[in-house]
Amino acid sequence: MISPELPPSIKAALDDALQGTARTELAPRAASISAAYRQGGHSGVIRSRADALAYALVRMPATYAAVAASLNALCELCADIAPSTLLDCGAGPGTASFAAAQAFASLGTFTLIDANPALRSLALELAQHDPRLAQLGYLAGDARATLAKAEPAELVIASYMISEISDSAQRALADLLWQKTADTLLVIEPGTPAGFARIRDVRARLIGQGAHVLAPCPHERACPMVEPDWCHFTQRLPRSRAHMQLKAAEVPYEDEKFSYLVLSRQAPAERAARVLTQPQLTKIAASVKLCSDDGVGIVTFPRRDKAAYARAKKLAWGDALRGSDSQ
């Protein structure tokens, strides 16, 4: 399991990059970038080094936390997974690649793709602080056109980038991501109804092309989630002092909501139900909302069954629940 916090080397690299840059200069840039994204914008609003730094301080920690949580879910179910090559599509400042490097000591080749020159430049600068990433390859250009030219990789990640392209382009990109996946594909989107809708579309499309779902779903049938509900998870992470200053935040932590999907060329050795919300505990029972082989529903663990109740009390939103754990 890897920590949801940025690695010390990347934190130190960001501190070095900030030398000589006033926080008062970055705060309005961070606010402008956040507003643009909320209105459906994309990374094209990041045009300078100062913009890239503001983005990295405000969004990079939360994005890293979501990627780390998704990789932890993958490793929990596939303890022996050991990819040697990574393809990071829409890599931005390198966030997903930094998380993958922490999760897999086996990774030796890192290939990143992004069209934004300011984010690409920052990623290369930050990578110099990590010996394993210092020689990463960063391909510049449009995601689909550049991805088409890239070599396949054992682990492919598309983190918070599908939303930046049109619906028709999303379908074509999903196909191409799967074509470039030699083993495992991880897709992450914001934990909103719209973000989940994109994840569900990718899921259905690629299952139709032979993909197997590793997480979070316990099956490959049609998604049983019914509107207005949607499948998403949350990862809490501490805020740095700079982050709090830029966002004018009052609490020292942030809860990043995200939706994710892990697909594989290989069928999983086992399936696990997924906890979809924080379990509710009462004096009578523990109620757990699960997505299982039977669909989405509430499973109750009565307090009189001390062993089952004790297991349920340890569960958290996003946990995998194997069949033996629910007995």
Rank of each mutant, 00 (worst) to 15 (best):
I2L: 03
S3M: 12
L6Y: 01
K11A: 08
A12S: 14
D16F: 15
L18R: 13
R23T: 11
T24Q: 14
A30F: 08
S32L: 06
S34D: 11
S34M: 06
V45R: 00
A50W: 07
A56T: 10
L57T: 07
M60V: 01
A62G: 12
A62D: 06
Y64R: 02
Y64S: 10
A66V: 00
A68E: 09
L74I: 09
L74R: 03
C75E: 06
L77F: 00
C78E: 14
A79Q: 14
P83I: 12
D88H: 08
G92I: 01
A96C: 09
A96D: 08
F98R: 05
A99F: 07
A99G: 10
G108W: 04
F110P: 00
F110D: 05
T111A: 12
L112K: 03
I113S: 02
L119A: 04
S121V: 11
A123S: 12
L126I: 04
Q128G: 08
D130C: 11
P131K: 04
Q135C: 08
L139V: 03
A143F: 02
R144F: 10
K149H: 13
E151C: 10
P152R: 13
A153M: 11
Y160T: 05
M161E: 03
S163Q: 12
E164C: 08
S168V: 06
A169D: 15
A172W: 05
D175F: 04
W178S: 06
T184I: 12
L186G: 05
G191A: 09
T192P: 07
G195N: 08
F196P: 03
F196L: 03
R198M: 11
V202T: 15
R203M: 09
R203P: 07
L206W: 12
I207F: 11
A211K: 05
H212S: 07
L214T: 08
P216F: 06
H219D: 02
E227M: 08
P228A: 05
P228W: 04
F233S: 01
Q235C: 11
Q235S: 08
Q235V: 15
R236E: 15
R239P: 02
A242I: 00
A242T: 01
Q245T: 09
L246D: 02
A248P: 05
P252T: 10
F258W: 04
F258Q: 00
S264Q: 03
R265F: 15
R265L: 10
V275I: 04
Q280V: 03
A285E: 09
V288W: 02
D294Y: 12
R303E: 11
K306N: 03
A307N: 12
R311A: 02
A312R: 09
K314G: 06
W317F: 09
L321P: 06
R322G: 07
G323Y: 00
G323K: 08
D325C: 04
